[in-house]
Simulated assay, not measured.
Amino acid sequence: MVSVSAPAPKRRRAARGSGEQLREEILDAATDLLLETGHSKAVAIRAVAQRVGVTSPSIYLHFADKDALLDAVCARYFEQLDEEMQRVATEASSTIEVLRAQGLAYVRFARRTPELYRIATMGEGRPDSDVDMTLASSAFVHMRATIERLMDEGVYPRGDSTAAALELWTAAHGVAALLIAKPYLPWGDAEEFTDRVLRSICSGHIAIGFIGADLEPGAAIEKLAKLKELEEQPDE
């Protein structure tokens, strides 16, 4: 592992018009430091500058301060999640399988880079940060669009697609956060555990479409039991 304080070789002067390339190199260096240390406190502007091979003022030409740099790192991270959510949607065979794949992809993505996920979603937020907006576009919007298609198909009951998407997103984030923070708990196979939790949320919405959303839990159980009895009756 490269030491945070280790001097980097002096970077050649960038060619005219290559400011975007330098910005990406800065983001790469900050990301590497986050992954190596697992903590945002280790990502000092000076350390990033040393890693890239530039002076600290060169960093400030692209990012106003350390918070702005970390925001950009997290936003780029969620742009990669956005690509993953779109990819799995193209591989699913039905709309309900798209929703399942999106939830699994979200948790899988978080577990693949737990340090970044922890910093991006469980760190202190700032009112002017664009991280939440980027995360919302990468996960929430995709899930909501899929739920709206399920409502159009009659699989999900008509209702507030925003609330339904937030419920699924909350479950996915909760699973991801606990698998990352408490890996020693008896989860069993993480992928299977994730699938069971997310399927329970989806199945609950589908069941509500059949029995009604206003029933108390006891009445809902009775109605489901009657539906099961009818299904098990032999055909005459």
Results as ranks from 00 to 15, higher is better:
residue 183 P to I: 04
residue 183 P to D: 03
residue 184 Y to V: 04
residue 184 Y to F: 12
residue 184 Y to L: 09
residue 184 Y to T: 12
residue 184 Y to P: 01
residue 184 Y to C: 05
residue 185 L to R: 15
residue 185 L to Q: 15
residue 185 L to P: 09
residue 185 L to G: 08
residue 185 L to W: 09
residue 186 P to V: 08
residue 186 P to E: 13
residue 187 W to V: 15
residue 187 W to E: 07
residue 187 W to N: 07
residue 187 W to G: 13
residue 188 G to K: 08
residue 189 D to F: 02
residue 189 D to N: 14
residue 190 A to N: 08
residue 190 A to F: 06
residue 191 E to N: 03
residue 191 E to W: 01
residue 191 E to C: 03
residue 192 E to M: 05
residue 192 E to V: 14
residue 192 E to I: 13
residue 192 E to W: 00
residue 192 E to P: 03
residue 193 F to D: 07
residue 193 F to C: 05
residue 193 F to E: 07
residue 194 T to Y: 02
residue 195 D to I: 01
residue 196 R to I: 07
residue 196 R to N: 10
residue 196 R to Q: 13
residue 196 R to Y: 06
residue 197 V to L: 09
residue 197 V to G: 10
residue 197 V to W: 00
residue 198 L to S: 12
residue 198 L to P: 11
residue 198 L to E: 13
residue 199 R to V: 00
residue 199 R to W: 08
residue 199 R to Y: 05
residue 200 S to N: 03
residue 201 I to R: 09
residue 202 C to Y: 08
residue 202 C to M: 14
residue 202 C to F: 10
residue 202 C to I: 15
residue 202 C to K: 05
residue 202 C to V: 15
residue 202 C to G: 10
residue 203 S to M: 02
residue 203 S to V: 04
residue 203 S to C: 01
residue 203 S to H: 03
residue 204 G to L: 07
residue 204 G to T: 14
residue 204 G to A: 13
residue 204 G to W: 14
residue 205 H to Q: 12
residue 206 I to V: 14
residue 206 I to G: 02
residue 207 A to V: 03
residue 207 A to D: 04
residue 207 A to M: 05
residue 207 A to S: 05
residue 207 A to P: 00
residue 208 I to S: 04
residue 209 G to N: 12
residue 209 G to Q: 11
residue 209 G to P: 06
residue 210 F to R: 08
residue 210 F to E: 04
residue 210 F to S: 05
residue 211 I to M: 06
residue 211 I to F: 06
residue 211 I to H: 12
residue 211 I to W: 03
residue 212 G to R: 05
residue 212 G to P: 09
residue 212 G to L: 07
